[in-house]
């Protein structure tokens, strides 16, 4: 077995520890009286799974709190087998955990758990998203240049959301579940699942303030259209309960709409 073959065998012996895979991974590994080669592979398995579980606990602390450490560890172990980590940065790992949880049979009764995981992932990505000031070239023009747009070009404006922003919809009050499980939460701990679904936007403002804002259906529709890059003319043709002249300015003011481009007709 050359080095590459052994490294592949080792990986399988860690993440898919069937007896055959373990034996293969232990090929050429020295065992001693106190520690067999399988024991030694087991030390690495514990270290690897422990490290990754700890990383994911950091990204999904509410999920871990809701299901408990043991259950979370078990879930992570299955997740790792199905969705290997493809980046040297452990902070990039976990994007597919919400999808995995939704298929994870033992978690079926916790119907809201995949959405809680999704909210935590969006929080994590917003926290680490590129700061607009750090971009060497902005992917859009700043809103301050809006005034310079000729009236005949206004229909072609495509507004752009802050790069940290993500929209999500849930059939459950996940923002409340998330909120009551924060360390600094004070108040009524109970969440009534019958409170129903919610539309959310998760983002980070210019002063590094992390935000989870609740949106009504109109606001979600409006911001989704913007996120999809629809032209202002098309958005103006959509029906909202408020006129666009009232919907738009607050988002620009708070920095959620961070810039614009001019699209093509």
């Amino acid at each position: 077995m050359n080095l590459k073959e052994w490294q592949e065998a080792f990986y399988k012996g860690i993440f898919d520890p069937t007896q055959e895979n373990i034996q293969h991974a232990c090929h050429g590994v020295n065992g001693t009286e106190n520690l067999s080669s399988e024991d030694r592979l087991g030390i690495y398995r514990g270290s690897i799974l422990g490290g990754i579980t700890s990383g994911l606990t950091g990204i999904f602390p509410v999920c871990e709190k809701l299901v408990g450490e043991q259950y979370f560890t078990q879930m992570v172990s299955g997740y790792l087998k199905q969705y290997p980590s493809g980046s040297p940065d452990l902070g990039n790992y976990g994007e597919h955990l919400p999808a995995y949880i939704s298929e994870f049979e033992p978690a079926k009764e916790l119907v809201y758990l995949p959405d809680v995981a999704q909210l935590e992932w969006l929080w994590h990505t917003a926290f680490n998203a590129t700061d607009i000031n750090e971009l060497s070239s902005l992917p859009f023009r700043p809103v301050s240049e809006l005034a310079a747009i000729q009236p005949e070009d206004q229909a072609l404006i495509q507004f752009c959301l802050n790069p940290s922003a993500s929209l999500m919809q849930s059939n459950f009050p996940v923002h409340q579940i998330w909120g009551v499980n924060q360390e600094d939460f004070e108040g009524e701990q109970t969440v009534n699942l019958d409170d129903g679904g919610v539309n959310l936007i998760v983002w980070r403002s210019q002063d590094f303030g992390m935000r989870i804002d609740v949106l009504n259906d109109d606001e979600l529709k409006f911001l989704t259209a913007i996120q999809k890059g629809k032209l202002f003319a098309d958005i103006a043709g959509m029906t909202f309960s408020l006129p666009i002249s009232e919907l738009l300015p607050p988002y620009i003011q708070m920095g959620l709409i961070a810039g614009f481009n001019l699209g093509k007709q």
Binding site: Y44, I48, P84, Y93
Partner: peptide, 15 residues
């Protein structure tokens, strides 16, 4: 740390 593009996030031994 990695093999086949898959990362273990741990420091693994070499012969």
């Amino acid at each position: 740390v990695s093999v086949g593009g898959k990362y273990t996030h741990d420091l693994l031994p070499l012969p």
